[in-house]
Design a protein around this nucleic acid. Structure first.
Lengths: 159, 159
DNA sequence: CTTGCTGCAAAGTGTTTGCATACAT
DNA sequence: ATGTATGCAAACACTTTGCAGCAAG
């Protein structure tokens, strides 16, 4: 019933203008796709999703937009070991997901987001970051925590 | 003065035989290269190092050996965002480095190994792993922790 | 009207695969 | 002797780049 509101000025409008970038239709659509999912989309996933409503948008534009957004810190690029980059909107722009880390199955490449233990982690991470910044003269912007292993399904499959 | 001992049966000999794999010269040389460095080598780095003493060894063999070793858990494959995979011998086979994590400069891609706070981390990680394994029916084999930011040099360079 | 953005096609790059030969066990 | 391992060349798959036209501010 409810149609997409594309004309409405969203939170990202000022983010772009501030840097001299332009807000265009392809960029808006890509941002909407990223906003509307909880999955870890690849560039091609995004391209295909965009194609449904805007068939003329090219894969190149998707790549260029993703790079731009990553540079702006609006989204993060992940490598889960399946050869293609995966993208996820940064927490502050995610409606559906909060701060979480990843659990990656090394066999089927499935990725589970988990939010447990985040609070204890957070405390330790902040302490660690402060220490590292001082010792190595490094300004830390983000962290990555991932656990690798085998999911239940895969363990049952191959004995 | 001291020449390399290649014929000596090393720790990896039984590792290979146990699985029906064969110990060959290229594999030994690749393992030696990995053992003798503290750096995070790419496949090509390793290939070039191997070439110095064994010019006939091909890049393909390097890739295949690295994949084999990664499957065996003898080495880990990392992605630091510079488009090529980096390899590091697992702790138990590393002479020079103990357990550590990585600090990655997103500009120059330099990687610093740090060992601070590892003990506190370890405790928390173990607790987290136990919790996650139970909740998600996931057998965790390893974890990855990386901090991203900008190193001192790069911060000074571009204002 | 200026300059950033786009699509297309082509090029690039790290990595993988097919196949005949060589070699470890 | 048997089947794994190797090297070469070619194929792959994801990503990037060049360029002329388009459009946002």
């Amino acid at each position: 019933m409810q149609k997409r509101c594309r004309q409405g000025q969203s939170w990202w409008q000022p983010k772009f203008q501030g840097r001299g970038y332009r807000m265009t239709v392809p960029r808006q659509v890509i941002l909407e796709v990223l906003s509307g999912t909880e999955k870890h989309l690849s560039a091609e996933d995004i391209y295909l999703a965009v194609q449904k409503s805007y068939p003329h948008v090219g894969l190149t534009t998707v790549y260029r937009t993703l790079e731009l957004l990553a540079d702006m810190g609006v989204l993060f690029k992940f490598d889960f070991g399946d050869r293609r980059a995966r993208y996820e909107l940064a927490e502050e722009f995610q409606v559906k997901k909060g701060h979480h880390h990843h659990l990656v199955c090394t066999r089927c490449k499935r990725v589970i987001d988990y939010t447990e233990f985040i609070d204890q982690e957070k405390e330790l991470l902040e302490k660690t970051e402060r220490g590292l910044m001082e010792k190595y003269d490094f300004s830390i912007e983000k962290h990555l925590i991932q656990f690798y292993g085998t999911c239940g399904k895969c363990r049952k499959k191959t004995v």
